[in-house]
């Protein structure tokens, strides 16, 4: 049976992980490779690295980091942030990334989804969608929720699927950072509407939130950052509890 995936997300700036990571046994909390390796040992099924570097030199630094992760990590990982062209994606693929995640570049140029899928296969293309409820409607947002777009979230996700997205990473900006649980209502609507895997993101605070999102919605994976980074929810314990609730996991 296909397992539900648990995915820690790491923010990376200039090749270093940011957001105070607080593992007791970590020598260098800013070293993405060491952190990634720790997560793999704990039983993470996959990792997402989000590049938040703004400088022009970013690409070269990122490629080196991706290579270094691929050398040492034996689980799949996704790279997101600043990917706007086929060349960006190809460089990441050749450096060992299993998937890339595109967000605002896809909103600004939806044809990019088609081009990436044609060049590398749909399995390589994750479309990340940041959503926020505005006047009763779920609207796609950019720049970490600061910029509202014309797009209605459900419509955009349907369009992304039809253009060749292999997976949707859906972050609810209303829930993100609150630790009050995932947006199960929207996630349930979305998983019933499309036929590609969906990663739930935004709102994880307790083990029960993970149980809820897998029991109440059809998502394939759940992503979180701080609850993992600060050791609030150890992954082995999380997976044991999911298993106890008959949710298929990889132990």
């Amino acid at each position: 049976m296909l397992s539900k995936r648990i995915i820690p997300c790491l923010d990376v700036k200039d090749g270093r992980t940011v957001k105070g990571v607080n593992f007791v046994d970590l020598k260098d909390a800013g070293d993405p490779v060491e952190l990634a390796w720790q997560y793999a040992q704990q039983g993470a099924d996959e990792l997402v690295f989000l590049d938040i570097t703004a400088t022009h030199e970013r690409r070269k630094t990122m490629i080196e980091m991706v290579k270094s992760v691929a050398r040492q990590l034996n689980i799949p990982f996704t790279i997101g942030g600043g990917i706007t062209t086929i060349q960006d994606a190809e460089a990441l693929l050749n450096a060992g990334a299993d998937k890339i995640s595109i967000n605002s570049a896809a909103v600004k140029n939806p044809a990019l989804i088609e081009e990436l899928a044609a060049a590398f296969g749909v399995q390589f293309v994750v479309v990340a969608v940041d959503t926020k409820l505005v006047e009763g409607k779920n609207r796609v947002h950019l720049n970490g929720g600061r910029l509202i777009t014309e797009l209605e979230t459900e419509n955009w996700i349907r369009q992304a699927e039809s253009m060749g997205a292999g997976e949707i990473l859906l972050t609810s900006m209303d829930h993100d950072g609150t630790k009050q649980g995932f947006d199960c209502g929207l996630l349930n609507t979305v998983t019933q509407m499309i036929n590609i895997p969906v990663i739930a993101s935004g709102g994880a605070g307790t083990v029960q939130h993970f149980i809820d999102v897998f029991e109440k919605t059809g998502v394939d994976a759940a992503l979180a950052a701080s609850v993992f980074h600060f050791g609030e929810i150890p992954i082995p314990e999380l997976k044991q509890k999911l298993k106890y609730h008959n949710i298929p996991v990889r132990l």
């Binding site: 296909l2 397992s3 995936r5 099924d45 399995q123 997976e167 036929n195 895997p197 394939d220 994976a221």
Partner: peptide, 15 residues
Amino acid sequence: DKNQGIKIPHMGWNN
């Protein structure tokens, strides 16, 4: 066959 109620691609860990 997506008519079997499965998502495509088959992505993740399976035994």
